[in-house]
Design a protein around this nucleic acid. Structure first.
Lengths: 250, 250
DNA sequence: GACCGAAAAATGTCTGACATTTACCCTGTC
DNA sequence: GACAGGGTAAATGTCAGACATTTTTCGGTC
């Protein structure tokens, strides 16, 4: 729609792509809607049309935009967005008001996928993988229940889950580790707002420890169950339980 | 390394990106190696430097290349390639000699993921999803055992599995449907070379039918097991059984 | 009213120049 | 001889303007 409240620009094409992508992910333009024209964008941000084109190329590669000569640029449907693109995860991180649907879908995906990944990890983890897992878990323990270290705790949390994906030793699963940071950060931001008594942690630490132990023992079935319980926590936090089991008309 | 045997160019930036990507995926340049410079590429293909830049931007967005001002362009490690990018799947389709590692990783991923997707699908499929699944299965049946319709059979096969991902009703899983065409095509090309007696089909049709029936009945556990057996076939075709269960030193 | 053509509007491409970053070599000094 | 310094070359990044191509729109003609 409009470009108001998007001030002048400083930085290269990547920075501009980031700004536009985050504005789009925040809902400034809706799917199906027309995106501003190259010349308008160039004029508004006081940059060359070439730079705008490079920035838009990044958004197009991420499946956010659809461009055709003569017709203009339009926002693609949410279902066409490349949520698995690492670039997209970068853009999603720290977004103030991401589309709630996106967060729900990301968490629902992890809820179904992460048990399998943990099972694979239990069967394939080597010494390096275990070292990464243990280092991340140690970091989580040391930074737990210290309000000032919340940011570091999140980073260790991300590193822990990322290490599970890495330990699967599969190129495709490993690529999905990029999904972790945005989804975990969204959870933290969400669960901190409605101030809960226990701080939102639950027995998170203990359940992570169960995953680690199962992977260390090479027990895939136990690892899958433990991973399911870790994510059961987060699912409950967002009232996601209904996301599974609901079935449309038959 | 070199640009020999890559003739002159015709088409836009997308076409050039496709040519370069397919050459790269075919192994013409190895990870860590230096990619040709913009001006050399422009001279070789008789196009403008701008067009080359746009093409390289696409390869960079797919994680294939890493570009830094002053240092040049280098091929990234295989682990950094964005295998989940739909663009990458397009480039992979029909590649004469794809890196065997990539095919193996894709199939290993499906072997672990597709049972979960089928389970989700059993719990979430609606009437439209079932119609798509049944249409695809009908197409598979009608084109089976007809040598002239091999290409169409593959398309129905892709459509069947894609419908499973769609039926999961999760944005992330649905994105992964793009992986199906390249992996299925690679399987077909591979299993047709060493001429096997039964034509490589096995009881593929029957096992697909089992998946369809389980999803129609809403039986997630059965759907997962059936999906595992469908992929067990393909795994055996490529001697992939060893991909799971092998564990490095402890 | 239907068909055709010209003009407008948007993205795609070309060209040449300059900016910026990085690596390399060459020099001077201790 | 080793090392710090600057200067030059090389590669990618950005800018500016023009032209090409595609799509839509509007008008005119029959």
């Amino acid at each position: 729609m409009s470009l108001e409240s998007l001030g002048p620009h400083q930085g290269g094409a990547d920075a501009l792509a980031r700004r536009l992508a985050r504005a789009l992910l925040g809902g400034r333009w809706l799917p199906g809607e027309a995106f501003p024209k190259e010349l308008d964008l160039a004029a508004h941000f006081t940059v060359s049309r070439n730079l705008v084109r490079n920035a838009l190329a990044a958004l197009t590669a991420a499946g956010l935009l659809e461009r055709t000569a003569g017709r203009g640029t339009r926002v693609r449907e949410v279902g066409d967005w490349h949520l698995l693109d690492p670039q997209m995860s970068d853009w999603l991180v720290g977004l103030e008001r991401p589309q709630p649907q996106l967060v729900r879908e990301l968490l629902a995906f992890r809820h179904s996928a992460e048990p399998v990944v943990a099972e694979l990890a239990a069967g394939a983890a080597d010494a390096d993988d275990l070292a990464r897992l243990e280092a991340a878990f140690r970091g989580m323990s040391e930074t737990a229940e210290a309000p000032g270290q919340a940011a570091q705790h999140v980073e260790y949390d991300v590193a822990f889950h990322e290490a599970i994906y890495e330990a699967s030793h599969n190129l495709v699963w490993r690529q999905m580790g990029h999904l972790l940071r945005p989804s975990i950060l969204a959870l933290v931001q969400h669960s901190q707002r409605p101030a809960r008594g226990d701080g939102g942690l639950g027995d998170s630490l203990g359940r992570h420890a169960a995953v680690l132990a199962a992977i260390r023992d090479g027990d895939g079935t136990r690892a899958a169950r433990a991973a399911r319980e870790v994510l059961g926590l987060t699912a409950r936090d967002l009232a996601l339980d209904t996301a599974t089991g609901v079935r449309a008309d038959r």
